[in-house]
Design a protein around this nucleic acid. Structure first.
Lengths: 176, 176
DNA sequence: TAGGCCATGTAAAAAGTTACATGATTTT
DNA sequence: AAAATCATGTAACTTTTTACATGGCCTA
């Protein structure tokens, strides 16, 4: 058995393999799962998921079988032994990749070209958005119940990060 | 005069126009500036910058002239009136785009597939990295002196966000 | 005189989004 | 009976990265 080449695991591949460590899933199911969980720190669209699943199957990291629901064709993917090894190997790699893409922050950076009223509105809007997003995360948390697995901690991270951001913009507004 | 189409301003175009609001720059200079300032919330590579500058010039948002240093060809770009209008129009658009891409967080999310020792190492590494990055940002802050413009506030945001993240992982470690 | 910085660019590949197309099943 | 959800996919496009190629200028 030759070890699968891990350096070729694309970001999307990592999310897919990760979600398959919990249980076998269809492409549709993977999309739903990313939308509900990893979306804010690593999303995926159908345009990536379906082709990537086929690539992963060719590479032997996942395997699939048909499982139609009535007339509806349906293909369920599961992790192979090679897939699990490749994923676990990625899990223990040291990586520092971290990136924030925040348009509000970019606007603030160039804010000297803004009027005072515009700046005011930006600060207000950002606070609102962060509070709303924190509330959305909280609702998701209530749906899935008390924190048990590590996914729960990540959700709590999301809530706290959104609150921190809202507070930061509030502080900025008071300062200016 | 017809208004330039702002919906076609790519993310890279916005950073370029934004940096040109301060002063005229060469492509190389723009790259240096993004590396030193916007990198962590909006970066750009040469492969985007040079082609984008030509697109922007064709669209009339920037203008350039040659300014060689000895034998070295050198082209300096500046914002046109249309470019300034397009950029200011973007500045006041309402946008909520926000994204975090954090590999450490992704690993934590799938951390049930990790051993206790692996998880331990992840938490330690992340704290280290956030503390180091906060220190790096602080050094940059010392170089550019006291906070005067809004760019200084964005730098302070970066420092505080890195500290918050380090603290979060420290708290997590104590909990587990 | 060597190394680092300034300077410009391209080609190819990788990654990701958006819009479209289709239709069955399940729930209200 | 209608609406929502489950389900699969593609094509075109946009965006971004990576690797390569080139060479002058400045300073220790």
């Amino acid at each position: 058995m030759h070890l699968p080449d891990m350096s070729s695991l694309s970001p999307t591949a990592r999310v897919i393999l990760g979600l398959l460590t919990f249980r076998p899933r269809t492409g549709y199911d993977i999309k739903q799962a990313t939308d509900r969980s990893t979306r804010f720190f690593w999303g995926a669209s159908y345009g990536q998921i379906y082709p990537e699943l086929r690539r992963l199957e060719r590479a032997g990291l996942v395997a699939s079988h048909e499982e139609p629901r009535g007339q509806v064709p349906r293909r369920v993917y599961r992790l192979t032994e090679d897939g699990r090894l490749a994923f676990e190997s990625w899990l223990s790699e040291p990586t520092d990749q971290y990136e924030v893409r925040d348009e509000g922050l970019l606007r603030l950076f160039f804010g000297d070209a803004m009027s005072a009223a515009q700046l005011e509105e930006l600060m207000r809007r950002r606070q609102e958005w962060y509070r709303e997003t924190a509330a959305l995360f909280r609702r998701i948390g209530e749906e899935i119940g008390p924190i048990e697995d590590l996914g729960g901690h990540v959700l709590r991270y999301g809530i706290e990060l959104m609150e921190w951001n809202a507070d930061w913009w509030e502080r900025l507004e008071r300062e200016l």
